[in-house]
Write a protein that binds this DNA or RNA. Structure first.
Length: 453
RNA sequence: GGUAACGUGGCGGAAUGGUUACGCAGAGGAUUGCAAAUCCUUGUAUCCCGGUUCGAUUCCGGGCGUUACCUCCA
């Protein structure tokens, strides 16, 4: 499609036309998971949002012209704590959770990014960058710690709209005696014997939280790239700090031209948080819902809005997919989505607007030609829906049934006998009984068919 | 306290300086033994108060309310 892509840029707070640095090499970096616990639906949102952005970019610039990097943070204090709590090794914990994360991505039908670098595999790069920052007087060492000197970077606070003096004037920031100023943040800290550590000019230790993204994005995407994404909460301090580190280390070159942040998921209108006890893990849904149901649910709200997660949302999504599967037809050859229908996705990833268009394409397909069904299916496929055959969709539903197929068929037989005898009361009883078990029967012409509700 | 975002029908959720998409639910009808499915038809909404305007839900100001970030967090 010839249309331009527009994106809401957190840097500046406006929707802007997306102009890549090099249309033959569009580059996007998204902050990935810290592998200390099973991913939850809050993690699922950016996975799906940026998966769609990845698809949209590829659609516009060509499949091989888009690079997408998403890091895996496998060294962090939360990981150390998590391993202690579970009484397993750090290595086992990070491997297990990384595997879980991969499974969750598959479940949600997210494409693999071009790169998925791990922090622990790039420690030397971080050490190099910290060295550069120290040389340039943007960082200082004190007692085996290295801190970034925030006052050395005059644009600090520009992304998150914060005034450094005001921000840190109060007593809310943890004050460490090692730091010169409260706003300074750690680039490197020492590790004890039993903590993971790497040798460095400042002794055995490990990197601070922010430096990995600066080091790895530089390695895989270069000093300046097009899009940097993540959850809203990362805007400050994480992304602010990334900018400070990267620009100071890279001759003040911008880190990313566009900053995209997705909104939060709430549960019963309250923030989902461990302290609230309302965290839904992605794997908790494996049994009950096909991953597409979650995917559609996550797309039903614009990515910047807060969205409330509840049963009704999933029920509706499931129902919609059930309906849509009726018109699934695998496209033969190349089928194009009409520009007007695709347009909302180009306009700041307006997924609800796009879904609305899919509904219209469905209406057409439901009564129209095979070609219309192919267009409809292609439109669904584009956002990662209806990609698996209908048989699989039905199979999933069958697997969660509590009644066997033989029993169902027997009941239907019984009911039809009752109907033949005009014993409609018994017939209706049997139907209701099946309905209670999630089986819907339909009398069509002379045949009775059944399906899972 | 500082910085932001948001407030659209019963629910979810877009868009817009002038008939307010779309889905779910609801209502009526066709169909049916009754249903289901399908098809047709259909009602209902822009937090409040000012301002700009021929006209605002949309722009501006104020208020009220909700939420987030400012501390680990997607």
């Amino acid at each position: 499609m010839n249309k331009d892509i527009y994106l809401s840029n957190s840097l500046g707070g406006k929707k802007e036309k997306f102009i890549p640095i090099n249309p033959k090499k569009v580059r996007m970096y998204v902050c990935g998971p810290t592998v200390y616990d099973d991913p939850h639906i809050g993690n699922a949102r950016p996975l799906v949002v940026f998966d769609i952005l990845f698809k949209v970019l590829k659609c516009k610039y060509g499949k091989s012209s888009v690079l997408y990097a998403r890091n895996i943070t496998d060294v962090d204090d939360k990981i150390i704590d998590g391993a202690k709590k579970k009484n397993i090794s750090i290595d086992k914990l990070t491997k297990d959770i990384t595997k879980r994360f991969d499974d969750d991505c598959d479940y949600l039908n997210c494409e693999k990014p071009s790169f998925e670098p791990k922090a622990t595999e790039n420690i030397p790069l971080m050490i190099d960058m910290i060295n550069v920052l120290i040389k340039k007087n943007n960082a200082y060492e004190n007692k085996s710690h290295v801190y970034f000197n925030v006052s050395s970077f005059k644009d600090y606070g520009k992304l998150s709209n914060k005034n450094v003096d005001e921000l840190f004037a109060g007593a809310r920031v943890e004050v460490s005696e090692n730091k010169k100023r409260p706003e300074d943040f750690v680039l490197w800290k020492p590790s004890t014997e039993d903590e993971p550590g790497w040798d460095s000019p400042w002794g055995r230790g490990r990197p601070g939280w922010h430096i990995e993204c600066s080091a790895m994005s530089k390695k895989f995407l270069g000093d300046t790239f097009d899009i940097h994404g993540g959850g809203r909460d990362l805007l400050f301090p994480h992304h602010e700090n990334e900018i400070a580190q990267s620009r100071c280390a890279n001759e003040n070159k911008p880190l990313s031209n566009y900053w995209i942040h997705n909104g939060f998921i709430t549960v019963s209108n309250e923030k989902m948080a461990k302290s609230q006890g309302n965290v839904f893990k992605i794997k908790d849904f494996y049994e009950k819902y096909n991953g597409q149901v979650l995917r559609l649910a996550l797309m039903s709200t614009h990515y910047r809005q807060a969205m409330d997660w509840n049963e009704n949302l999933l029920t509706q999504s499931k129902k919609t997919l059930d309906k849509w599967y009726e018109c699934q037809k695998k496209p033969e050859g190349k089928v194009l989505i009409p520009d007007d229908d695709l347009a909302p996705l180009y306009d700041d990833l307006n997924t609800p607007g796009y879904i609305s268009n899919i509904h219209k394409l469905y209406d057409k397909a439901a009564k129209g030609s095979e070609k219309d069904k192919e267009i409809f299916t292609t439109a669904c496929n584009f956002i990662g829906l209806l990609t698996e055959p209908k048989s699989k969709w039905l199979e999933f539903k069958k697997n969660i049934l509590e009644i066997s197929e033989e029993e169902i068929l027997q009941k239907i037989k019984d009911r039809n006998t009752a109907r033949d005898n005009k014993n409609y009361q018994l017939a209706d009883e049997i139907r209701n009984e099946l309905l209670d078990k999630g089986i819907l029967i339909e009398d069509k012409d002379d045949k009775t068919t059944w399906k899972i509700k």
